[in-house]
Amino acid sequence: MTINVLVTGGAGFLAINTAKFFKAQAASVFGIGRSKDDSDLECYDGWIESSVTCKALLEFDVRFDLVVHCGGGSSVGYAQENPLEDFYKTVAGVAELLEFVKKNNPEAHVIYPSSPAVHGQQPDVPIDEDDEIKPVSVYGYHKEMAENLLICGHKLFGLKVSIIRFYSIYGVGLKKQLLWDACKKIVSSPSAVFWGDGNETRDWIHVDDAVGLIHFLFTISEPPLVVNGGGGASMTVRCVIELLERYLGVPPSSSFNGNAKAGDPKYYCAGQRVLKGLGWSPKVSIQDGLFDYVEWFKKNYG
């Protein structure tokens, strides 16, 4: 039986990869968002150019089996500088979506890519889903509000909801965040300088694994309400930069300015308790994933 899938924020990196995956599974895939290029929309059977509102979603006239809500703010820095706009994108967007689902599509499974930014600053140990929620950025506070709305929809209205706190999603085609910025800096400067001291840790998950986790949660009968989406192993930013330099064929010469960006936690590592209990684990190693990313970068932009 063909399933109907809705992907919001449909022109984003995770969204497009999600749409392509389900399209390859013979699903009918629909998207809503602000597109950047017509090529972004080739994976959709229907598209609405709009912010996520209940009114706009009604234009589809489709009963969805799965809603992957990738819409909303995606930048800590942008949210700090534009808190009201980020609120409307992230928090109000979830409220609009839930109103649509509650009134018109209550059987749909809503999967929300959230962020470990809800946990704020944590010690250098894996973060469990049940660890304290104490955001330190506008971005983190808004993600917490969005999560609370989804949990409310689940507990009060019986909506089927899964929240995935994705850590650092990366992969071929990503043109923002650390890997993209670092590759551009490294190839254009003999002595690239990066924020922080290099000892910050991040947990990386390849986009193929991120999409695989979304699909996995959709297929199991009783998915958890909240789950970490990470590789379960931290790597320092310094180590990531060194790997990029090696794969780019550039002598190691990068340095760090010692200044932390506002709102950026120092340590990130996803606890794996819930995922291991479900029998799911990522497949792509960070070394293989970074190598493929650099090969793509060199071929197209190096």
Results as ranks from 00 to 15, higher is better:
residue 11 A to F: 10
residue 13 F to R: 09
residue 27 A to T: 05
residue 29 V to W: 05
residue 29 V to T: 01
residue 34 R to I: 04
residue 35 S to T: 12
residue 39 S to D: 11
residue 39 S to T: 09
residue 56 A to R: 08
residue 58 L to N: 12
residue 60 F to T: 01
residue 62 V to D: 02
residue 64 F to G: 05
residue 69 H to Q: 11
residue 73 G to I: 09
residue 74 S to P: 05
residue 78 Y to M: 10
residue 82 N to H: 07
residue 85 E to M: 09
residue 88 Y to W: 02
residue 90 T to W: 01
residue 91 V to P: 01
residue 95 A to M: 12
residue 98 L to E: 15
residue 98 L to F: 09
residue 103 K to G: 13
residue 108 A to C: 08
residue 125 V to H: 04
residue 131 D to R: 00
residue 134 K to W: 00
residue 137 S to L: 01
residue 141 Y to A: 15
residue 141 Y to H: 13
residue 149 L to I: 08
residue 153 G to P: 06
residue 155 K to W: 04
residue 164 I to G: 11
residue 168 S to I: 14
residue 183 C to W: 02
residue 188 S to L: 11
residue 192 A to Q: 13
residue 194 F to N: 14
residue 197 D to H: 14
residue 198 G to E: 07
residue 202 R to V: 11
residue 208 D to N: 13
residue 214 I to G: 08
residue 222 E to F: 00
residue 225 L to H: 00
residue 235 M to F: 07
residue 236 T to I: 01
residue 245 E to Q: 04
residue 267 Y to A: 09
residue 273 R to H: 06
residue 273 R to S: 05
residue 277 G to P: 06
residue 283 K to G: 06
residue 286 I to F: 13
residue 293 Y to E: 12
residue 295 E to Q: 10
residue 296 W to Q: 09
residue 300 N to H: 12
residue 302 G to S: 11
residue 302 G to C: 04
